[in-house]
Write a protein that binds this DNA or RNA. Sequence first.
RNA 1: GCGCUCGUAGCUCAGGGGAUAGAGCGCUGCCCUGCGGAGGCAGAGGUCGGAGGUUCGAAUCCUCCCGGGCGCACCA
Length: 569
Amino acid sequence: MREVADGHFEEGPALLIRDDIIALVERALGAAQQAGDIPQFAAPEITVEHPARAEHGDFSANLPLRIQGMARMKAIEVAEALRAHVPEHEAVERVAVAPPGFLNFYLSPAWVATQTAAIIEAGETYASSTLGGGKRVQIEYVSANPTGPIHVGNGRGAAIGSTLARVMAAAGYEVEQEYYVNDAGTQVAIFGRTLYARYQQLFGREVQIPENGYPGEYVADIARAVKERSGDQFLKEPGEEPDPDLGRIGLDVMIEGIRADLAAMGVEYDRWFSERSLMEEGGAYDVVMDLLEQQNYIARREGAVWFTSSDLGESKDNVLIRSDGQPTYYATDIAYHYDKFVVRKFDRVIDIWGADHQGHVSRVKAAVAAVGADPDALEVLLYQLVTLKRGSQVVPLSKRAGEIVTLRDIVDEVGADATRFFFLLTGANQTMDFDLDLAKKQSDENPVYYVQYAHARIASILVKAQDEGYSSDGGDTGLLLHEAEQALLRQLLLLPEVVEKTVLELAAHHLPHYAQDLASAFHAFYTQCRVIQADQPDLTKARLLLLHATQTVLARTLGLMGISAPSSM
RNA sequence: GCGCUCGUAGCUCAGGGGAUAGAGCGCUGCCCUGCGGAGGCAGAGGUCGGAGGUUCGAAUCCUCCCGGGCGCACCA
């Protein structure tokens, strides 16, 4: 039981064994200094890592190498001195010194084996933690303009955002997922005029799509739907401005489509935040403008209203209100972030943007500071753009171009699971190619099948065991000492670290890589160790428990990625 | 030009101060007389873009250079 926040307690998972090892090193240092084996000095923060080679143990501390200077001793001697003072721990079988000065920890196979029970008990909460301490974090992602269907690049943001949301929730944050709907501004106006042009065309008028308009067929589709439902209700005299209601209806249709497309990929938001709502009388936009005025961050020149962001270290000032009286996207974005921090008081705000918005990051941070919030509480995660390909042929993504490959196309063709896994596999600041031909192939080249197959295989064995009357009741997990069993168990024990790392780095790609390693360890175990053996009832029970634990962790890992864990494929 | 980012196996990518640099795909060769072969094992394949520097130790940090991507609007 650990305190989460405000005296609220919850059942805690087993502590990370890694943290226990760190504590052992720390205590060894204290004891060695106490005993005079190592001189007194303030030690740096202690870390341990998993050695690349199994012969170097399960955990390795490089502390001796790092403090050899301070101790004025050879690293190897520091290591020896520390080793002599490492306290006993049930999980640690032995501690060894290795040149040039590593302190290596070897876990007890028996201890590792018995962790199976703890994993099964934790079930779908395995690898949950209280790292976030109940802090309120908002994750805003995709937020593509509702003037067109969302495309491949948005899909990458969707996969990363919704996965981070799941993982941070597991790590003890109170997470709110949000989509910022740009339902105001010039692009929306252009969309409205485009829709009206399409609408007029349906009544035989010779009207061109406006310059900079949206040529996609989807606008004509909406126009047809409106005509079907409302006839010529929105038709005005030639040359007149379109009815704003028409634009609004069109936008609603688009937003509903976006919502459905994202839902098809397993992405659900807690809130869809309307940009237009900021502009209401006395809304955040008015408040922020007054605030900036009071803080002397406003300048009027060339007929426009400027934010003097260069006073805050920015390379230049930025326009808030254009000379035509329309606020810029930047101005409403300041109001939006004011709402996030000052009105709704999130502890952390994570914005996930495409890398083409990179220039916007410091501007928004400067604005956040100007309205009195902590700019460090805003974390902007940029993902590099996706190049869409058909084989070696690059497909243009632009909404304005002829061919529009939507996210929905991809999800329909390769499935939500493969789409998500594929997007998550590559680190966010790495550009990636999305090869439609390859993604469509549904072959074993797609690693999601490898992972899901492991889960299905386990389910199949468990069913068979049940059919044949085997049970894991009373099984002794201490029997799981085979090399392949131990390797698998060590993978299972890694998930809490992966979750922590994912949260600390805001790097979702660790999960699919871990999933593959875990599946690989399972498949190797499966090949070497038969589970159901009539002449070995005790071992059968123990291995059934191991299967339960593995299935639990696989399902958990897939679940954190928003990917299904099928029982059959 | 300035800023951000990337350059690691034939291809797609991990690793981002630690020990002999990893995985998948592809390639070569093995493994189904028992639980799902969408599987397993082994092998070939690398001057970690280049050059300096910091460090006990650099693919990792710093500087410069080369080469890609993206920004640098009264667009969003």
